[in-house]
Write a protein that binds this DNA or RNA. Structure first.
Lengths: 345, 345
DNA sequence: CTGTTAGCGCGTTCAT
DNA sequence: ATGAACGCGCTAACAG
């Protein structure tokens, strides 16, 4: 045995004894109440803290001061690799950065929808507030939100355009509807008259908003252009290509294909390539939520850049301000998207 | 005011009083010591827990039982968007999933290298152990690891091929060296004789290992094939292309270009496209760490798939087992990579 | 099966 | 400028 297995971690008392002061003085040094401690004492205490490797026990402190220094990020998703989604990942990164900067910690918890009610966050009280990214069908998502609201803690939900008046609640999302309009305007300016939109069967509100924006754009243009929306069984490569194949078997080539997101648009584009259909000459293609990796594909997809990272940052700021002031400044934040023209339109 | 601003959160005593039992009985119900509580009492207590919306205060419990139910994930990176890196994100996802399944929480903290010493994790004791993903130069990374080791808590570091005998330490990484060999073997089988490897100027050990594996493969083949390694100022598109341009200005076309990772390989490939050089006919190209998004680019890059998610899972398992048994089962885990042939070789 | 006592490590209050 | 006593919410150990 190279080490005693259970050396007790130094406490504030140990430091006090070693520095020959009272525990209170150590506490004052730790919390920088320098008015109450002479510089000489401070130095002595700090030396002992260093020497003993003392670290404050967050549990005891938080218990005493009755506050939490962590924010929970709950991700409800059917996929076991919940966090692996690039969008979610960006959001979490932005959130964690802002919180860490304010000496808050981010506690990540992923789970399936049916696990929420039995999860630790429901049984324990250990964070100051929650942020949530929830996937699934409308009913499931709303049920999850209701459960979280009932926790009676500050709650921020991403990409969910709902209002819960009176609740300690805030929603943060990107302007998907505006993004849809930008796509519509861009294509209309190129005289596209026949639009095909491809959406995944699981309809996220964000995707509904994108289609809504597209419709608005067409309507504002006089309504001459037509829009068909088809559903792919999933976002997978094969399902998207199958949906495109089925559509094209029964219909003429559309002027433009609008994918609900980049993977869908890319799958559609590759299908066209494989069938000798030229992009953008014969069909224009647009995606949504441009991700880093897609910048590297050729031809470069026209898409709408998502402010996913900024969404997370905004959530962090909103949560910190909520904790400070007692209430959310605004019930909803909508961040602008950025249209990113590529070579496919 | 729609709500009293400071309604106190229910405690175990409140539940006890409401259910007309002692606090201890409530605690027994919460901790499922059912041997000590009659079914009728249990029901009564559970009803009151539900009614009062009681949730156990994790701080108080953890203080009392002197244990932490969270693992810290520290990410040291110069980029402010530290977590936004896809590889890191995958690792975190795997880790979080395993931990959550064992009723552990994952606490994420990102920071710059120079912030580590002043960070909360150094001042506070609030997790049962650490996992770390550290970037930067050798000296900086090793300094960071030393600081973490001095915390005297279980520590897992990713992608760092070092051993710290005697320390409560474990390293988990993918077989980058083996991946390099697979690439070499694959290209040698295609009669490539002149290899160009492109690495970023900041040399990660993982990338060194990839080059090392490549060298080993060439050596095992008799050493007739030549390998040149050039450095790009960064992994950015522009820097990589500039490095390729400079090399090609002074040298003949190599038989194959091996990028230290997929973005580098892709940037090189696009440079060749733009200059009318045919891939794979004139030059073959290989990347490393294939991620989902790259599957969508055409032509599909030959690459080596990274088990990033599995790395995180392995870390979770190793940490849980360490917490259980008192020591890491093994000082090092090396996970295999998977060669993924595409259309560029 | 249920209740009582004591104390985890820390910070506040009040005394010195 | 420093120290002593108390209690945050919870549970281990024991008594009933």
């Amino acid at each position: 045995m190279s080490k005693e297995p259970t050396r007790r971690r130094a406490t504030i008392k140990d430091v006090a004894k070693a520095a020959d002061v009272s525990a209170m003085t150590v506490s004052n040094v730790l919390n920088e109440r320098l008015q109450f401690v002479s510089p000489a004492t401070k130095k002595r205490v700090e030396r002992e803290i260093e020497r003993l490797g003392y670290r404050r026990q967050a549990n005891a402190r938080n218990l005493r001061v009755a506050e939490q220094r962590s924010i929970g990020m709950v991700i409800v998703d059917e996929s076991p690799a919940f966090l692996a989604d690039f969008f979610t990942c960006q959001v979490v990164a932005g959130l964690a950065n802002v919180l860490n900067g304010a000496d808050f910690t981010l506690t990540v918890q992923g789970m399936h929808g049916d696990q929420l009610s039995s999860s630790m966050i429901m049984r324990n009280f250990e964070v100051a507030g929650f942020c949530a990214m929830i996937s699934g069908h409308d009913a499931d998502r709303h049920a999850a939100i209701r459960q979280l609201v009932n926790l009676d803690q500050p709650l921020i939900v991403f990409q969910e355009p709902i209002a819960l008046p009176g609740a300690d609640f805030c929603t943060i999302r990107q302007d998907d509807c505006g993004g849809g309009r930008l796509i519509g305007d861009h294509l209309l300016a190129r005289r596209v008259e026949d639009f095909l939109a491809i959406v995944p069967s699981q309809d996220w509100p964000a995707i509904e908003m994108r289609v809504k924006g597209l419709r608005e754009s067409l309507a504002a243009n006089g309504g001459a252009a037509r829009l068909t929306v088809i559903t792919a069984a999933s976002e997978s490569f094969a399902d998207v290509q199958e949906a495109v194949a089925r559509y094209l078997a029964a219909n003429p080539l559309p002027g433009a294909i609008v994918g609900a997101n980049d993977p869908i648009a890319t799958a559609a584009m590759l299908y066209l390539f494989d069938h000798g259909i030229r992009v953008p000459d014969e069909v224009r293609i647009v995606g949504f939520n441009g991700f880093e990796a897609h910048r590297y594909a050729r031809p470069r997809l026209t898409t709408v850049d998502s402010p996913a990272y900024a969404l997370g940052e905004q959530a962090g700021k909103a949560m910190l301000s909520r904790l400070e002031s007692g209430r959310f400044e605004r019930p909803e934040f909508v961040l602008p998207v950025h249209f990113d023209p590529g070579a496919t339109t």
